[in-house]
Design a protein around this nucleic acid. Structure first.
Length: 272
DNA sequence: CCGGGCCTGCGG
DNA sequence: CCGCAGGCCCGG
């Protein structure tokens, strides 16, 4: 499940490899992976060049010539890999062919992933990037307090809301709660300003460390060259059910919060 | 705020 | 062989 650090890893790799490439065609199976249809996109994308690649939340945005955008969301099991990587051939849902002979594959086991081809004028609405909240790594403490300070409800639900903070998913939400020292089902309205300051640091630390280790590769994530991330070896709670907490030695527990599997240390993380 | 839908693989 | 894995959307 690619979240902000995993998507950032892919985007940084792409920035070093796809700028200036010119599209030839797009091939792939039918279905709803690509919007509009793959034949339509294939015709219209021919001759366009990639000017830049950037990340917005968990979206990957290719800035193309002709005022066009190609936007990718990997959702759960999506991957963008070069064809030279022997990567899940039977799950390739779209293959992007370039004039220089290279091919970028979008593979996706569960078919939740989406690709949009649209104009720069409509891409915010069509892809819902326009509804994203703030980028957590481009925020200072006072902005964070302004954003989170007056909120109500359950902590983890708020961390997962893309319209408040963009890019946090289930893994990093659990890690951020641990870093803050709060149980994921803590009530927002009872969190003190001091604790919010700790949460702000935890958000930055968890995401930046994830990027430094090129993401978490439990389940499906891999980079564009097929290489795996290393951050799974540094997680404090996610996926560590029954293992000892690195801080206090208690056994990590798992429950359900916000409808998702939720990992926490019963001693370090108290409900407020 | 919850739960179902979208999908498939895989673990219990 | 059921149900879990959890991205996002939608309806209630």
């Amino acid at each position: 499940m690619p979240e902000l650090p995993e998507v950032e890893t892919i985007v940084r790799e792409l920035q070093g490899s796809v700028r200036g490439k010119e599209f030839l065609k797009v091939e792939g199976g039918t279905g709803r992976t690509i919007v509009p249809s793959i034949s339509d996109v294939s015709k219209r994308i021919r001759g366009l060049k990639i000017l830049d690649v950037l990340r917005q939340g968990k979206f990957i945005v290719f800035v193309l010539s002709g005022k066009m955008r190609l936007v990718v969301h990997l959702r759960m099991t999506g991957r963008l890999t070069w064809e030279t990587v022997e990567d899940r051939k039977k799950y390739v849902r779209a293959a992007f062919y370039f004039k220089d002979g290279s091919v970028l594959n979008f593979s996706d086991v569960r078919k939740f992933g989406r690709i949009w081809f649209c104009t720069e004028g409509e891409y915010l609405k069509i892809t819902r990037i326009g509804r994203l909240g703030r980028e957590p790594l481009e925020m200072n403490l006072s902005e964070f307090l302004q954003l989170f300070g007056g909120r109500r409800g359950i902590l983890k639900n708020n961390l997962l809301r893309q319209d408040i903070l963009a890019g946090i998913g289930n893994i990093y939400a659990d890690e951020i709660c641990f870093g803050t020292g709060l149980h994921p089902s803590s009530r927002m309205e009872r969190i003190s300003k001091k604790t919010y300051a700790r949460m702000f640091r935890a958000i930055k630390d968890c995401l930046e460390e994830g990027i430094r280790h090129c993401g978490v590769s439990v389940s499906d994530f891999a980079g564009t060259r097929g290489d795996l991330g290393k951050h799974q070896d540094y997680l404090q709670v996610y996926g560590r059910t029954g293992d000892k907490c690195y801080k206090c030695g208690s056994l990590i527990k798992k429950t359900v919060v916000a409808g998702r599997g939720t990992h926490f240390c019963p001693r370090c993380q108290k409900k407020n």
